[in-house]
């Protein structure tokens, strides 16, 4: 029983990083109804800028963190300006493909900065372990879990208690009506995009400092894990992102423990596939989709 609980705990810990990534994804998808494939590569740009600084000058860790977040916000704004703002509301597929083209661009830019496969990244805690009774936890991941909960709380407050949030929710309901009632749709979307990229940047920094290294696979990894966690939890909803991230982490931890690393990813994809077929709205399902940000989540978002 104790190993089982330990594995579940490990899964929840790793899952909190997926939850963080999914949070940013859910914000963009919830507001724009469009898929930003460049989400991961934007995080990668920030992380690589931070790493470059760290390797060259060895600044304190918080400076690296600031650079990583600022870098991914900059990259995110670039993506929004180039792939989302100029294309009309109807051009969902074009935006997605365009963000894919920019993915290639951002990834190559990162690799030009740092050509090796992996580099060291500063750790927040020195990678020590804490034991709680019979269980072992890593403080890195506890920070991540706390960051995820704090950020989702802050995001909920922002959405439901501020003017900006009201505007955002109005756009989600009906962007035409929102613009008619005096909301600057384009600016609000840009702000939401920047916010989502900042969340992604924080997620990226925390994950890398827990791993103490950064690899060239970061962009692809962040996009895929964030997307999968969002889909498992429920489209475009904040609690969905958290539940999805944690669920993905637990599934992965258990299947890795039982069958090894290759089957881990296989199990995650299999669960995702079965879940989508049986319950297309994700774990938090149709109610969440109907009520929250993902109102038209089940509809076609791309064609026309």
């Amino acid at each position: 029983m104790i190993p089982f609980i330990q594995t579940t705990l490990d899964g929840l810990m790793v899952g909190s990083s997926y939850g963080l990534l999914a949070l940013g994804f859910a914000l963009i998808f919830g507001v724009m109804r469009r898929l930003n494939l460049s989400y991961g590569p934007s995080i990668m740009i920030g992380a690589y800028l931070g790493t470059l600084l760290y390797i060259k000058f060895g600044p304190p860790t918080y400076v690296v963190a600031i650079v990583a977040v600022a870098g991914s916000v900059m990259a995110g704004i670039y993506v929004e300006r180039l792939c989302f703002a100029p294309l009309g509301v109807g051009a969902g597929v074009a935006s997605m493909v365009s963000s894919f083209a920019i993915w290639m661009q951002l990834e190559q830019a990162s690799l030009l900065m740092l050509p090796r496969h992996s580099y060291p990244f500063p750790s927040l805690t020195g990678g020590e372990l804490w034991s709680l009774g019979p269980f072992v936890v890593r403080p890195d991941y506890l920070i991540m879990l706390a960051a995820m909960l704090a950020m989702s709380a802050a995001l909920t407050l922002l959405l439901y208690r501020t003017r900006f949030g009201l505007g955002l929710r109005a756009i989600v309901e009906n962007s035409l009506a929102a613009s008619l009632s005096g909301i600057d749709v384009e600016r609000t979307m840009l702000k939401a995009f920047a916010l989502a990229s900042a969340i992604g940047g924080v997620a990226g920094f925390l994950v890398l400092s827990a791993n103490q290294q950064v690899t060239a696979m970061l962009g692809m990894w962040a996009t895929l894990k964030g997307l999968i966690a969002m889909m498992i939890g429920g489209l475009g909803s904040i609690p969905g992102a958290i539940v999805g991230g944690l669920a993905l982490g637990v599934i992965e931890a258990h299947s890795q423990n039982l069958f090894g690393p290759q089957v881990r990813d296989l199990a995650a994809y299999a669960v995702l596939f079965v879940l989508l077929v049986l319950r297309p709205g994700g774990i938090l399902g149709t109610t969440a989709v109907r009520r929250g940000m993902g109102q038209r989540g089940g509809d076609r978002w791309t064609t026309t």
Binding site: D265, L266, L276, P280, D299
Partner: peptide, 16 residues
């Protein structure tokens, strides 16, 4: 399934 859900279901299948 539609839209994103179909897209991600096919993605999950292909990766599997």
């Amino acid at each position: 399934l539609h839209g994103l859900q179909f897209a991600i279901a096919t993605l999950a299948f292909a990766e599997a």
